[in-house]
């Protein structure tokens, strides 16, 4: 159970990105986070693994407050939270395998990983994860030789290497075409259904939300506007979330 209470983030310039946001995510749920660009979706996700330090509020996970964790504790928490990014964030000049193995950095001994030594079990697991997303044959290619869809699959495989209990997906399909988008979403769905991993996924398109999410939360200007089943977003709610000039597409 992930419990977010009164989360507020004010950036250095005084921009209010999150305004007193509270909601809960039960274990094993596929939660979609929707809202306009700049509504605070990315900030919310990054506050959960503290890539961004929240200004106020608490994030309780399994009874422990993430916002109070020390650096060492944060390292242990982060390795249980996988993250998938809009721009894939692969290290371009490294091989696909190294990129996937990077998911184990929280587990392996730092001294060994500095010498680029990973346990054989991790290497086998990396190949297995790549196989699962269908690109095991690309393991030794350089990451920047892959197409966008393939790169995102590497991103998913990297997150899966962490053996995560939660996956934070920050607009994972926003830079992909619709076919690839569905393929990546299906991978996330599989991870959610088969492994029971909780998924928090920010999305732009409502049809993806309807198709994959168990529940949705909506943000507008840092405020929580909606919380409930995806079907509950009717035209009135839609206009409230996206502004009254918005029109539904797709």
């Amino acid at each position: 159970m992930l419990k977010i209470q009164n989360l507020t983030k004010i950036y250095d310039g005084g921009v209010l990105a999150l305004d007193n946001v509270s909601f809960e995510v039960p274990e094993g749920q596929f939660l979609a986070i929707i809202g306009l660009s700049g509504s605070g979706k990315s900030t919310l996700l990054r506050c959960i693994n503290r890539l961004i330090e929240p200004t106020e509020g608490t994030i309780l996970w399994n009874g422990k407050d993430i916002t109070k964790a020390s650096d060492d504790e944060m390292r242990h928490i982060r390795r249980k939270i996988g993250m998938v990014f809009q721009h894939f964030n692969l290290v371009h000049r490294s091989s696909v395998l190294t990129n996937v193995l990077a998911g184990r950095l929280g587990y392996v001994n730092p001294a060994m990983s500095i010498l680029n030594r990973f346990p054989q079990s991790d290497i086998d697991n990396a190949i297995k994860q790549l196989d699962r997303v269908g690109i095991a044959d690309k393991a030794y290619s350089r990451a920047d030789e892959l197409s966008g869809g393939q790169q995102q699959r590497v991103g998913v495989a990297r997150a899966m290497m962490q053996n995560p209990e939660i996956i934070l997906a920050d607009e994972p399909v926003a830079s992909l075409d619709p076919v690839l988008a569905h393929s990546i979403m299906q991978h996330l769905e599989k991870i959610n259904k088969e492994d029971g991993t909780t998924v928090l996924c920010s999305l732009h398109f409502l049809d993806l939300v309807h198709r994959y999410a168990d529940r949705a939360v909506a943000l507008n200007d840092g405020k929580l506007m909606y919380e409930g089943p995806p079907d509950g977003i009717d035209d009135a709610k839609f206009k409230e979330i996206y502004g009254k000039d918005a029109e539904r597409v797709g």
Binding site: R79, N89, L90
Partner: peptide
Amino acid sequence: AGPVEAIQSTGAN
């Protein structure tokens, strides 16, 4: 900054 952020998010020191 993206790749660095991604490596950080795995729990790397």
